[in-house]
Design a protein around this nucleic acid. Structure first.
Lengths: 158, 158
DNA sequence: ATAAATTGGATAATCATTATCCGGTTTAAC
DNA sequence: GTTAAACCGGATAATGATTATCCAATTTAT
C-alpha cells in the first residue's frame, strides 16, 4: 500500500479531534504528519471529492470532517486516494495462451486474486475512523493523545 | 500485484503439464506467455532459489517442477518472486506524531493493515498449483487445454 | 571441441508514485 | 474596495520500484 493512504488516514484522525466548525490549515496538517505540503494538498482534495472531508476556502480556511467518524471507513479513505483499481490487474496471459473468449477472461488465477482482495478489503471496511480513534484513546497512548489534542486546539482556526 | 507473479504462476502451470524428467527451455516458456525473455529468466531463477522448480544447464537443458503440484501454493510463488516484504510498510507517521517508543511502532493502523494482509495471504495459501490445474481442466477450457498439452509435448526436451 | 542452455552481475528503460510550481478563485479583515 | 491568506486545478518534474537488456562465465549433450 502506498504511503498516501496512510498519511490520509492520520490526517482524518487529526481532523476528527477538531471541535465543531473549526478547521485545520493544510500546511499545518502536512507539517504535523511530515509530508510534502503540495502533494498532501492533492491527497486532501481527493478526500474532499470523496465527500469525506469539507474544505473552506479563503482566509481562516482549512479542512474539516464532513461525515461522522462512525461513517468513515478506512476502506473509504483507501478508495478515495487510490481509486477503484484493484491490487491485481489481470493481464490476460492465460487467456491468450488458452485463446479464450472475452467473457472467459476472468480465468482461474483472476478469480483467486479477486477473492483474496475481497477478503483484504473486508478488514478495511470493518474499521471506521471512530473505532480507530477509540483504540488510540483507550490504548497505551492516552498521554500522548492529550498532547496531540492540545496541539490541535493551538493550531485550529475559528 | 505485479505481473511478474502472474507470469510465474502460469509458467509453473505450464511446467506442471510436463511428463516426468522432461524440461522446458526458458525462451519457449516466455514466448508462450508473451514475456520478455531475459527478464523472465530472472523470475525463473527466483523460483529455482525458492526450490519450487529445478534447472538443468547445458544443451537440452531447461526447467522442470521440483515439488509436487500439491505442495506448491500460489503463496509460495508470490513470496518467491516478491519476497517477504508486506503490502503495507508502515512509515511510522503516527509513531512520530505520538512520540511513541520503538515497541509501540505497531500502531493502530499498522495492526489493521497487518490483519488485512494476513487475510489476503490466507486465500493465496489455500490454493495450490494442483488445485488450479484441476480447475483449468475441469472448467470451460478443456478443449484449449488439450491444445496446450500438445504444444508442451512438441516443445519439451528429453 | 562445439553448440546450446542456465547463472549472475551490471546496467538501462519504463512506469507509477510522489513532489513542485503557477495562475485562478474564494473569503476574512482592514 | 483592497489586500492577504487560504483552497483549486492543471501542467510538469523528480523519485523509486519494476521491468528489460546485455555480457561474460559455467555446465552439458553431441
Amino acid at each position: 500500500m502506498k504511503t498516501g493512504v496512510e498519511q490520509s488516514v492520520y490526517a482524518v484522525l487529526l481532523l476528527n479531534m477538531l471541535p465543531d466548525k473549526a478547521v485545520l490549515h493544510s500546511e499545518v496538517i502536512s507539517g504535523q504528519i511530515g509530508a510534502s505540503p503540495t502533494y498532501f494538498q492533492k491527497l486532501l482534495r481527493k478526500l474532499v471529492s470523496a465527500d469525506l472531508i469539507t474544505s473552506v476556502p479563503g482566509v481562516k480556511g482549512g479542512f474539516r470532517l464532513k461525515k461522522d467518524p462512525e461513517d468513515i471507513r478506512v476502506y473509504d479513505i483507501y478508495v478515495a486516494i487510490e481509486g477503484q483499481q484493484s491490487l491485481y490487474s489481470p493481464s490476460g496471459i492465460l487467456s491468450d495462451v488458452l485463446e479464450l473468449e472475452y467473457d472467459d477472461r476472468c480465468c482461474v488465477l483472476g478469480e483467486l486474486m479477486e477473492e483474496a482482495e475481497e477478503s483484504w478489503k473486508a478488514v478495511l471496511k470493518r474499521e471506521t475512523i471512530a473505532s480507530l480513534a477509540e483504540q488510540v484513546e483507550s490504548d497505551r497512548f492516552v498521554n500522548h493523545v492529550t498532547d496531540l489534542k492540545k496541539w490541535v486546539e493551538e493550531n485550529m482556526v475559528v
